[in-house]
Design a protein around this nucleic acid. Structure first.
Length: 855
RNA sequence: GGAUGCUUAGCUCAGUUGGCAGAGCAUCGCCUUUACACGGCGGAGGUCAGGAGUUCAAACCUCUUAGCAUCCACCA
């Protein structure tokens, strides 16, 4: 008798297991003993060292871990590589905030000291994140952990920059970029988020030079008027055609602006006249290029007005806006102010309003790089996406993307490896640092995604030719959420293709985001975030993992709630108890043996057949990353087939005196339980490992087992029918009692019309599960029989019992009508698949003959 | 403006090549049956968002309308 606690206690079960696996090196890739196995590789999308892991990270890493463990059991040498991201802007913003609260100014602190502070911050968070990973039970190869700013990455980044620079694919240029005035740095296009904001649309009078008349010009950003270089209209616009070449007075500063015609202007929009501010708007910039206009910047880096703005010099942009409008109004040149709702660009990190402005920055020239990926995606070597629709999302971006602004005016990050000779002024790009006495290095750092884009190969040692790279590149599958397809997946793709000539991953699996139970995004302001640690504390890692995996459909968001975790816990408790029952059945001298399929009892055939179907279904779905679907099959098998039916049936067998059959059943239970645990292991590793350790003749760990395969046998059809009819007839009797309002344990009389052999076989089961008082074997068929595949059954001749039969008749009539309709349709007979027609005929025969016997 | 996803039981969602609609929770009966009351058994509950089409057959394929959500672009 094994002493196992009555209830599943996740804390006791999970304690020490992760360490146990670590101690036995199960998570490590490329170990001597595994070198003959095929490799399988994945990396974790590196979390930012900015903060701690939330439930969104949990779903991502859980999915990867399930795949990793599944592949491991399926005979692969799995690499699951952990890494963290320095997250330039995000981390620097946090550290600056922290320093501000401590009353420290970063400029006074200086670059070196600031970076020291940031490294401290990074170390603290990295430690905590690692703890969270371990708590989530992740089987990452921690010995190979990487950081996007580590030495290897420094080399890789410098090499990539230098190469692209030499190829002319990285250039420095003056263009309109997105400027974050709070963090005082440039941003790439995708670091900008558009939000609907309420704003004002100001209409001003722009008088003609000769004061003969004025034009109505509208703007949402009056403060930029100091940078206006022209007023434009469409050349086709009859209203203004004659004005071309004349000049108007800028009401902000009295300067004269030329009137120019440009096709960009929409005749239908507003008044059809538009002011042109080349240094503060990308479209105006293009117009300026066409018309040779000057580029005048009117904002300082911190969002205040500069010296071009006269009396407004030094004022914040919004204060300036109000004061300027006030001034123009007082001069009689304000026509009206309309309230409008428009899309305003905000910084993804600081949330401040982004100013488009002219600035000298570094860019990656995208066309050639993107086209190379598009070409591969149109070939046989393409990377496949799950779900497939994301392949289009991926391609569309590549087709439309603009050059990538990669320089950031930050300190935390990879510094741009470009140097200027202090004497000659010569500009040099160098992979290795140059003498600071002779050269001054570019002050800026690179966009964080510039380094994380190299992850699939640089984390494996590139540009060195390492064994790791050789063996595991390209990655087998990239698992990530749809919100970073553009940030990360795209960039890994074109860097990978450019530097390794192949896509960096064979497959991409895209999952959704975790939302709260009402489908709202988890956010600090709503305070609806869920801390995975809390969930683990209350319900355990396995429940969390199971809840995340089961409730998700590929590519769709998951509405997460504690209730779902609680349900998972209840299910695990069920498994715990079922195992507890099975584990106590094994006699002292039990030794597992091979199943002899030639002499199986019908019920044992049935459960093994169900087991085989389970394995096929789970494997098929795992290969498609349909984890939720796979988990459903597991759930149904364990709950309905194994627990509710087979375990119950086994009690009858084990109470009989057929010693051979008892032995066989115990052995079948052993194999089923072991297989269940192995199949469950990827999803709920702690619980399955714990129960496994109680199993007789277990190995050191489930990790040393291999994934079960379906048995290559034909089960006897009549055995399977027998089991199915047993399940059905028990259900019938229970149902019958329910209709008659009889207690479930009310002793009924049953009559069976069948052969003696079946009677003998069925009797003990019916007796037990239907609380039959008496079960008679009928040699001659009488009325009121309910028909099952192997035999006919009737309950005692009660007046009310007819209700149950009536219900059955109802069902039969329906089913027959359905079949008749199909079979009477000549088109159906002619065009439907043969199997379907045969099946329908069979059904019809079966049901009509049953119905006849009731009438 | 362009694109995508979603709409199925009271709620949260599955539904794998088209073949008589499923689960969990909630609800309603009944049951302390020797693994499990974190349990067992049974019931009730659906015009698969609306419309049209293809097909012998549509929750599923095509078109269309509506609502919700998200992404991309962005007109001053």
């Amino acid at each position: 008798m094994i002493e196992i606690e009555k209830n599943y206690d996740h804390k006791k079960v999970e304690e020490g297991k992760e360490q146990f696996w670590l101690d036995n090196h199960y998570f490590e890739a490329m170990r001597e003993e595994n070198l003959s196995k095929p490799p399988f590789s994945m990396i974790v999308p590196p979390p930012n060292v900015t903060g701690i892991l939330h439930i969104g990270h949990a779903i991502n890493t859980t999915i990867i871990d399930i795949i990793a463990r599944y592949k491991k059991l399926s005979g692969y040498d799995v690499l699951f590589l952990p890494a963290m991201d320095h997250a330039g802007i995000a981390t620097q913003a946090k550290v600056e905030e922290k320093l501000r609260q401590e009353g420290v100014n970063k400029y006074e602190l200086g670059r070196e000291k600031f970076l020291e502070e940031t490294y401290k911050w990074k170390d603290e968070h990295a430690d905590y994140i690692t703890k969270q990973w371990l708590a989530l039970g992740l089987s990452m190869d921690y010995s190979k952990s990487r950081f996007t700013l580590d030495d290897g990455m420094q080399k890789a980044v410098a090499h990539v920059f230098k190469t692209l620079y030499d190829e002319g694919l990285i250039y420095r240029g003056e263009r309109i970029i997105n400027w974050d005035p709070e963090l005082k740095t440039a941003l790439s296009d995708i670091e900008v988020v558009y939000k609907e904001d309420k704003g004002e649309f100001y209409y001003f009078k722009y008088w003609l030079e000769d004061h003969s008349t004025y034009l109505e010009v509208a703007t949402t950003r009056p403060e930029t008027m100091f940078g206006d270089q022209a007023v434009c209209f469409n050349p086709e616009d009859e209203r203004y055609k004659d004005l071309e070449g004349k000049r108007v007075i800028n009401p902000a500063n009295g300067e004269l602006l030329p009137l120019i015609a440009d096709r960009y202007v929409d005749k239908e929009f507003g008044t059809g006249v538009m002011k042109c501010t080349p240094a503060h708007d990308p479209n105006d910039f293009k117009i300026a290029k066409r018309h040779n206009l000057k580029l005048v910047r009117i904002l300082n880096d911190d969002g205040t007005m500069n010296e071009k703005c006269g009396e407004f010099n030094g004022l914040d942009r919004y204060i300036c806006r109000d004061k300027l409008v006030e001034k123009i109004k007082s001069e009689g040149n304000l026509l009206k102010i309309e309230d409008i709702t428009h899309n305003v660009a905000h910084s993804e990190r600081s949330h401040s309003v982004v100013e488009p402005l002219l600035s000298k920055q570094w860019f990656v020239s995208m066309r050639k790089l993107a086209d190379a990926v598009i070409e591969i995606q149109n070939s046989e070597d393409k990377t496949s996406f799950f779900p497939t629709r994301f392949a289009d999302t991926f391609l569309t971006w590549l087709k439309n993307t603009d050059d990538w602004c990669i320089s950031r005016q930050l300190w935390w990050g990879h510094r741009i490896p470009v140097y200027t000779d202090k004497i000659t002024g010569e500009v040099v790009c160098s992979e290795t640092p140059l003498d600071p006495e002779k050269y001054s290095q570019d002050e800026d750092v690179l966009d964080t995604w510039f380094s994380s884009a190299l992850a699939p190969f640089a984390f494996l040692g590139w540009p060195e030719k390492t064994e790791l790279l050789e063996r595991y590149y390209p990655l087998d599958v990239m698992v990530t959420a749809y919100d970073i397809i553009f940030f990360w997946v795209e960039r890994m793709a074109f860097e990978g293709v450019h530097f390794t000539k192949k896509m960096p991953f064979k497959k991409v699996y895209i999952h959704g985001l975790v939302r709260d139970e009402k489908g709202r995004k988890m956010s600090k302001s709503l305070n609806n975030g869920i801390d995975p640690f809390k969930v683990i504390e209350e319900y355990g890692t396995d429940s969390l993992r199971y809840a995340l995996a089961t409730n998700s459909t590929p590519g769709l968001d998951v509405n997460f709630s504690m209730k779902k975790v609680e349900n998972a816990h209840i299910f695990l408790n069920k498994i715990w108890n079922a195992s507890r029952y099975v584990l106590n059945l094994f006699p002292e001298d039990y030794v597992p043996f091979e199943i002899d399929f030639s002499s199986l009892s019908p019920l044992d055939s049935w459960i093994l057949n169900e087991r085989d179907k389970l394995i096929e279904n789970v494997k098929a779905n795992m290969e498609k990353y349909e984890l939720g679907q796979a988990a459903n099959y597991i759930y149904n098998f364990i709950y309905d087939i194994f627990c509710s039916n087979y375990l119950e049936f086994s009690k009858v067998t084990l109470n009989s005196d057929d010693e051979n059959r008892k032995k066989e059943t115990i052995n079948v239970l052993y194999h089923c339980l072991k297989d269940i645990l192995t199949i469950l292991f990827p999803f709920c590793p702690f619980l399955s490992e714990e129960i496994y350790s109680y199993l007789p003749f277990h190995k050191k760990s489930l990790y040393e087992e291999s994934y079960p395969l379906p048995y290559d046998v034909e089960y006897k059809k009549e055995d399977l029918n027998f089991a199915e009819s047993l399940v059905e007839s028990i259900k019938f009797i229970r149902n019958h009692k329910s209709i008659l309002s009889l207690a479930p344990n009310y002793p009924l009389n049953l009559a069976l019309y069948t052969d003696e052999k079946t009677y003998k076989e069925v009797y003990p089961y019916l007796k037990r599960f239907s609380f039959a008082k008496e079960i008679t074997l009928l040699l001659e068929k009488k009325g009121n029989m309910v028909h099952y595949l192997s035999y006919d059954l009737s309950v005692e001749d009660d007046e009310k019992a007819k209700q149950a039969i009536a219900k059955r008749i109802e069902f039969l009539k329906d089913a027959i009508a359905h079949s008749e309709k199909l079979l009477n349709n000549p088109n159906f007979l002619a065009k439907a698949k043969k199997e379907k027609v045969d099946y329908e005929k069979e059904q019809y025969e079966k049901y009509t003959s049953e119905l006849k016997s009731y009438l």
